[in-house]
Structures are given as C-alpha cells and as structure tokens.
Amino acid sequence: LRLEVKLGQGCFGEVWMGTWNGTTRVAIKTLKPGTMSPEAFLQEAQVMKKLRHEKLVQLYAVVSEEPIYIVTEYMSKGSLLDFLKGETGKYLRLPQLVDMAAQIASGMAYVERMNYVHRDLRAANILVGENLVCKVADFGLARLIEDNEYTARQGAKFPIKWTAPEAALYGRFTIKSDVWSFGILLTELTTKGRVPYPGMVNREVLDQVERGYRMPCPPECPESLHDLMCQCWRKEPEERPTFEYLQAFL
C-alpha cells in the first residue's frame, strides 16, 4: 500500500490517493489515533465489506491497528460538496442534479434492503467520479466515533443540521433518520452546496425544527421536489418515504 497524494483533511483524519497491490488506484482514509476503537472498527469493517453495490464506494481493505487505515475505490472528482461548490458546479442544471440524487437514493435503497443504517448521509460523504457518477461513502463509521465533541451530539463536530430530530435528541438512528438526511442533501444539491438552514446555528436549528420549522423551497427548485424534501422531514419517522420510493420518484 503506497500513500501518494494527500487529498484532504477532516476533523478525524486525512484522505490520500495511493496504490494498492502495486496496480490498483485507491483512496486511503487514515484516522487520528483515539477516534475509534480498533476492535469496534474491525467489526464494522466486516459488515462494510459485505455491502456491495454500484452506488456505494467499495471497501477494499482495512488496517485495524492505530493509525487505522481504510482502503476504498478511488473517485476522481472528490466529495459531492466540493464538486457542487467548484468550477463544474456552476454548469450543473436541475436534470443532472436530480440524476445525482437518484443515484444516491439507489445506493441508499440497497442499504435499506440490507437493514443497515448510514448515520451520516450528506454531500460531504458522497463521492463523485467521471460522468457525474455518484456513490455513497463512509457508511456506518459515524457510530464508532468516540470523540466527546461528537458523541455528545451537541458538540461542534456533530452534523446536527443533517440529523433527524429523534436521532439528534435521543440517539434513535434508523434508515428513517437517513431519509431525513437525504432530504437535507437534496437542498445541498439544489443550492450547489450551500450550508443548510443558512444564518442559523446548530442550537437554533434543533429548537426550530422541533417546533415544526422546515426549510423553504430553494430558488429555481420545482415545488414537486420541495414537496419530496418535506416528506423526508415528516416528524414521525414511519411517515417518511422509503429510499425505494425516493429512487422511483426521482
């Protein structure tokens, strides 16, 4: 395994491009020591290896001592969030954005069929390849993070704006909380990567959403798509659509 080009840095580690087995181009995620327990990670990795779908980033291998390494397929255009905010983002029109959403829903419909939960679905965790191919990455890892700023769910590192209220408040993460996050991801797509709930801080978002506030229809977004977002944001988790439905609708 060779680490060649550093692609990015996040709160919990770095991402590199490299070569595996001398020939395969891969992405390598390294986790800061202390982010998660190697034992817990190894268990999760076994499950992650079983998830194989064309719209999920394929896991190739893991190094399960500290520092933990995760070796996955390489996606040339990086994260969907950076892609939307970058040069190419300007030229993306609604049909392409909807197609990308459908690809993500397709990957998540598979996660749904496998009775698995992602827990951290957002544009930053979707990767883009050639020809606007989108794949879901980092599934299941969020559960293992041991950082206090994260586990408190009120901490600075927790993605509260993407998280369903029952998950943020009571830790009830299910495929239905993933559906909520998918609704937020749809706003990221239609606004080219704007942060959700602009002008609001995490605490406010939690309070307002509890009181029934939902983001309005983004500019140039059809009402039918906003309606779909609002279905994803129904207060009762069981009233939210399935990913199978979302995939078919898109």
Results as ranks from 00 to 15, higher is better:
Glu4Pro: 15
Gly8Ile: 00
Gln9His: 10
Gln9Ser: 08
Cys11Tyr: 13
Gly13Leu: 02
Glu14Gln: 15
Met17Arg: 14
Thr19Asn: 08
Trp20Tyr: 12
Asn21Thr: 13
Gly22Tyr: 14
Thr23Gly: 12
Thr23Leu: 13
Thr23Trp: 15
Thr24Asp: 15
Thr24His: 12
Thr24Lys: 14
Thr24Glu: 11
Val26Leu: 07
Val26Ala: 09
Ile28His: 01
Lys29Leu: 01
Lys29Glu: 00
Lys29Val: 01
Leu31Lys: 14
Leu31Asn: 14
Leu31Gly: 08
Pro33Met: 08
Thr35Gly: 11
Met36Pro: 03
Ser37Gln: 05
Pro38Gly: 09
Pro38Asp: 14
Glu39Thr: 10
Leu42Arg: 01
Gln43His: 12
Ala45Lys: 03
Gln46Ala: 13
Val47Asp: 03
Lys49Ile: 04
Lys49Ser: 06
Lys49Arg: 03
Leu51Lys: 00
Arg52Lys: 09
Glu54Ser: 11
Val57Met: 07
Tyr60Pro: 02
Val62Gln: 08
Ser64Arg: 05
Glu65Gln: 10
Tyr69Leu: 15
Ile70Pro: 01
Gly78Trp: 04
Leu80Met: 10
Leu81Met: 12
Asp82Phe: 11
Leu84Asn: 04
Lys85Arg: 14
Tyr91Gly: 09
Arg93Asn: 07
Arg93Ile: 07
Arg93Glu: 05
Leu94Ser: 06
Pro95Gly: 09
Val98Ile: 11
Val98Asp: 04
Ala101Lys: 02
Gln103Val: 07
Ile104Cys: 08
Ser106Phe: 14
Val111His: 06
Val111Phe: 09
Glu112Gly: 15
Arg113Ser: 12
Tyr116Arg: 03
Tyr116Trp: 07
Arg122Ile: 00
Asn125Arg: 00
Leu127Pro: 01
Gly129Phe: 04
Lys135Pro: 02
Phe139Gln: 03
Gly140Trp: 02
Leu141Arg: 02
Ala142Val: 03
Leu144Val: 10
Asp147Thr: 08
Tyr150Trp: 02
Thr151Lys: 05
Arg153Gln: 07
Ala156His: 04
Ala156Asp: 06
Phe158Asn: 03
Phe158Gly: 00
Ile160Pro: 03
Ile160Asp: 01
Trp162Asn: 03
Trp162Tyr: 03
Thr163Leu: 01
Ala164Val: 00
Ala164His: 01
Pro165Gly: 11
Pro165Ala: 11
Ala168Val: 05
Leu169Asn: 10
Leu169Trp: 14
Tyr170Asn: 07
Tyr170Cys: 08
Gly171Pro: 00
Arg172His: 13
Thr174Trp: 14
Thr174Ser: 12
Ile175Asp: 14
Ser177Leu: 05
Asp178Pro: 00
Ser181Arg: 01
Phe182Lys: 01
Phe182Thr: 03
Leu185Phe: 11
Glu188Arg: 02
Val195Met: 13
Pro196Ser: 01
Pro198His: 08
Met200Ala: 07
Asn202Arg: 04
Arg203Leu: 14
Glu204Gly: 05
Leu206Arg: 02
Gln208Asp: 08
Val209Ala: 10
Glu210Phe: 09
Glu210Cys: 09
Glu210Leu: 06
Glu210Asp: 08
Gly212Glu: 06
Gly212Ala: 06
Met215Leu: 11
Met215Cys: 07
Met215Val: 06
Pro222Tyr: 08
Glu223Asn: 10
Leu228Pro: 05
Leu228Phe: 13
Cys232Met: 08
Trp233Arg: 00
Arg234Ser: 13
Arg234Phe: 10
Glu239Val: 12
Arg240Pro: 01
Phe243Asp: 03
Leu246Val: 08
Phe249Trp: 08
